[in-house]
């Protein structure tokens, strides 16, 4: 014998002989009440879960405003040696928001790559001290003309290109400009691949050559 469900397939409750059914009714009142209660619960839960999630996730989509930080007078920086300068990346949090930038004047003999050989767009070369491997602070060793990382032995040459250790790409750079008062200013960070081709800023450990540039997407609202 077929079950009740098989016999009454009509969408009308009257056809299904539901007690209390009336003409044109397609859903039982019990089912309607259950659905309403569930929906109300879901709306109530979502109304506090979604804003809380948004609060936690918002920083992924936000970017720090571009800052221009004064590094020092133009004469301060030679073209064959780096001078360490401390600049603020995030304001209002004291020492934690600061970073060291290694700055030198543009050098036509050194900066011969297609991307940085123009001294008008790159009047100064500013390298980030953030190691491209895990983000430890690298140190400029003038005698060896190398940047050395204390954590895992990453070594970079005078252009910030990797010459040893685990880093997957050269040191990050900062845009530079000279103000009307003759002061060198440090601008936003950008990352470079092994040919010093500029990319939007990437985190340490993210390669920018070959497949790497597609595996590690640019951050939101940044152009490549």
């Amino acid at each position: 014998m077929p079950s009740k469900h098989d016999r009454y397939k009509s969408k009308y409750t009257v056809d299904r002989q539901v007690p209390g059914a009336f003409e044109g009714e397609t859903i039982t009142r019990r089912r309607f009440m259950t659905g309403t209660a569930h929906t109300a619960g879901a709306v109530a839960a979502a109304s506090f879960t979604l804003p809380a999630l948004g609060l936690a996730l918002a920083p992924v989509f936000e970017r720090e405003p571009h800052r221009w930080e004064i590094a020092g007078p133009v004469d301060m920086f030679p073209d064959d040696n780096y001078i360490p300068v401390v600049v603020t990346l995030a304001a209002g949090i004291g020492q934690v928001g600061k970073t060291t930038v290694y700055v030198r004047k543009h050098n036509a003999a050194l900066d011969t790559d297609a991307y940085d050989r123009n001294p008008r767009t790159h009047p100064f070369i500013a390298l980030s001290d953030r190691c491209a491997h895990a983000g430890c602070p690298v140190r400029w060793v003038p005698a060896a003309e190398r940047f050395a990382c204390p954590c895992h032995g990453g070594v970079y040459d005078i252009l910030g290109r990797r010459v040893g250790g685990p880093p997957p790409r050269p040191l990050d750079r900062f845009f530079t400009r000279v103000s009307k008062q003759g002061l060198v200013e440090i601008g936003p960070r950008y990352s470079v691949n092994s040919e010093l081709k500029p990319f939007s800023p990437r985190g340490p450990g993210e390669p920018l050559d070959g497949l790497g540039q597609y595996l590690y997407p640019a951050q939101f609202d940044e152009r490549k």
Binding site: P59, E64, A90, V96, P201, G203
Partner: peptide, 9 residues
Amino acid sequence: RGGSEFGAT
């Protein structure tokens, strides 16, 4: 991190 750099939060 709550941002692209180690920050206030």
